[in-house]
Design a protein around this nucleic acid. Structure first.
Lengths: 196, 196
DNA sequence: GTTATAACTTGACAGTGTCAAGGTTCCATG
DNA sequence: CATGGAACCTTGACACTGTCAAGTTATAAC
């Protein structure tokens, strides 16, 4: 027998792993009321702790947002991978799958997806953020690898695709374009296949 | 001689045209400290009035932001037109000019450009916003008109170009891509010319 | 059991946007 | 010229925000 429940559950002290609870509360608040609905104090209240408790786990609001963003990129990567793996096994279909996963994530996690690209709202130097965001980029880049286009190098194709899908979701989110009228497949260029 | 100074200068009452002064103050604050540096009270202070004065000219903070965004779109349009008119008189060069104007504006008015595509921060039903933003879109669409590409209709090409440049500036702004390593001309597809 | 550390609370502070109530200044009308 | 009313602005208050300082309590190590 262990001495205390804490040893088994990983829970400590009064609350338990408050850190993850605060992140979860933050994501819920973002989902329910958008970016403007999130506050440190509301996260604390939802986790059942006092308003100053988060300070012992995160470096201020930016610290909490950093953790939310990092977790967001992990979900983001999974969305892209899942959509890709459910697509046909051709380079074009795989790339389209990646983009559809990108778009689905941006729609279902609208506020988190918005936050993830506002660099002055969180700590971009955070190792978790760098790890998870790099992983996301890696998955997208991987899907671009089979292609070439004129004089464009690899990085240029990756930048093209990423800019295109990011701009598409951003404009759709802000009501500037109608994704029903112009689905994304319509505007994704048909690249040539690499030869080597 | 006119009866009062007000009749000549257009200034009225205590301050003068406070409305435009508040917009100007807001744009300055955005330029100096980014989105987080703007507040109604600071705008009021900078314009030399009390903290509640703006309420008589704008419907809250969202109202002031709406006016800033509308003015932003006007400047945005001018940037695109100016860059286009300094480009060679070929459809491809004209379109590249439009995009360069788009990028230049997004760089020089970073915070305003960011705000312009956050629809829940201002009133999208405002007529001034609708007028100025439609004008911006019109200028971009005009530059897309000479082109065709496979089965894409006009709207699809416009959506492609707009998404591409918007995503490009957004990713560059958030530090995800390096515009020096991959200039925009590199990723802008070479469309075919329309025939009719 | 004692002690040290981590986790959390309470209280305060300067900001924020917004509302209510009041005071000015201006202009049109009598 | 006087006067009423409208437009403009101020003062004060409220609830809410993030952050800091100080105190309290629970856990773990010894």
């Amino acid at each position: 027998m262990t001495k205390a429940p804490a040893a088994r559950t990983g829970k400590r002290h009064h609350h338990g792993n408050l850190k993850q609870a605060l992140v979860k509360a933050g994501i819920s608040l973002l989902a329910e009321g958008g970016l403007g609905a999130l506050s440190l104090r509301k996260c604390a209240a939802r986790a059942g702790v006092s308003h100053a408790a988060p300070a012992h786990h995160f470096k201020g609001l930016k610290g909490l947002l950093t953790a939310i963003v990092a977790q967001g990129f992990e979900t983001f990567t999974r969305y892209m991978i899942d959509a890709r793996d459910q697509s046909a096994d051709t380079p074009q279909a795989q790339l389209e799958g990646i983009c559809q996963g990108y778009i689905a994530f941006s729609r279902e996690y609208e506020a988190v997806a918005t936050l993830m690209f506002m660099k002055d709202r969180f700590y971009t130097s955070d190792p978790e953020f760098q790890r998870t965001s790099s992983a996301s980029y890696g998955v997208l880049a991987e899907a671009c690898a089979p292609f070439r286009s004129g004089t464009m190098n690899e990085k240029a194709i990756e930048t093209l695709v990423w800019s295109l899908v990011q701009g598409y979701v951003h404009l759709a989110r802000s009501g500037m374009i109608d994704p029903l009228e112009t689905p994304f497949e319509t505007i994704l260029p048909k690249f040539e296949l690499r030869e080597d």
